[in-house]
């Protein structure tokens, strides 16, 4: 579904991604691990076409995204829940969710109902301003918002950031659910290697802007290098 080949990216004159190659197949959950400063968010921004200058191939369902303006991404069925959630703080939960479907002109009532079913806590807080919710609730809202456009490909940038362990588990359960039940292909970029590798099918390791390792997620979980670098063992 998504094929990234020889991707190089720059902030101005500073290079942040070096010849990155990543593949995500239909229906997979792929995770990209990286510690702080590894280039995870740069990678997300580069795929979206925001802020960075990019060279290389970003092929999605056969189309090269490199010339696509960022705001058109959603029309291709790609959504991103960004690092730090980035909800609209002065809009209510309901308005945030509805904005997720801004680009879709069809009736969205069904989708809206389904999203609320998936996140019952949001249903209780529809009139609450998104900026006043807890971290976990905001993450739910962000994911819900991303689902409102009925995407085929969902990207998540560090969904575990700032959340308590049990909430993190809930979030990744939902990611699994979205993938299995709704058939949405997922790419998760994470610092929390443990839960990411347990959830994903395949994984890559990103270090200083370069892909250092790749393979089956369960295999990588057992690999001594990964264990040293990311699992603190």
């Amino acid at each position: 579904m998504l094929r990234i080949k020889n991707l190089n990216a720059y902030y101005g004159d500073v290079q942040v991604l070096y010849d990155v190659n990543v593949e995500v197949n239909d229906g997979e959950i792929v995770t990209i691990l990286g510690s702080n400063g590894a280039g995870k968010t740069s990678l997300m921004k580069t795929i979206c076409g925001i802020e960075t200058r990019r060279k290389g191939v970003i092929e999605f369902n056969g189309e090269n995204l490199i010339n696509l303006p960022a705001h058109k991404l959603i029309t291709r069925g790609i959504t991103l829940t960004p690092e730090g959630r980035h909800l609209f703080p002065e809009l209510t939960v309901r308005e945030n969710l509805l904005l997720g479907a801004y680009a879709i002109n069809k009736k969205i009532n069904d989708t809206y109902e389904k999203v609320l079913e998936m996140f019952p806590r949001l249903k209780e807080r529809l009139s609450q301003f998104a900026g006043t919710m807890s971290g976990g609730e905001q993450q739910m809202c962000a994911i819900g918002r991303a689902l409102m456009s009925n995407p085929t490909f969902l990207m998540l940038d560090e969904p575990s950031l700032g959340l308590a362990p049990n909430i993190v588990e809930q979030v990744f359960d939902i990611i699994k659910k979205i993938n299995k039940e709704n058939g949405i292909t997922v790419m998760v970029v994470e610092q929390n290697a443990n839960i990411a590798l347990q959830t994903a099918d395949r994984a890559y390791a990103l270090e200083n802007g370069e892909i250092k390792m790749s393979g089956d997620a369960k295999d990588m979980l057992r690999s001594p290098d990964i264990q040293k670098l990311y699992l603190g063992l």
Binding site: K72, P82, H86, L87, F88, G100, Y102, A103
Partner: peptide, 16 residues
């Protein structure tokens, strides 16, 4: 409003 509150997010929503 969305663009005013979070330009990045607004772009992801499909807003030019």
């Amino acid at each position: 409003s969305a663009t005013a509150q979070d330009r990045f997010s607004a772009t992801l929503m499909g807003i030019n």
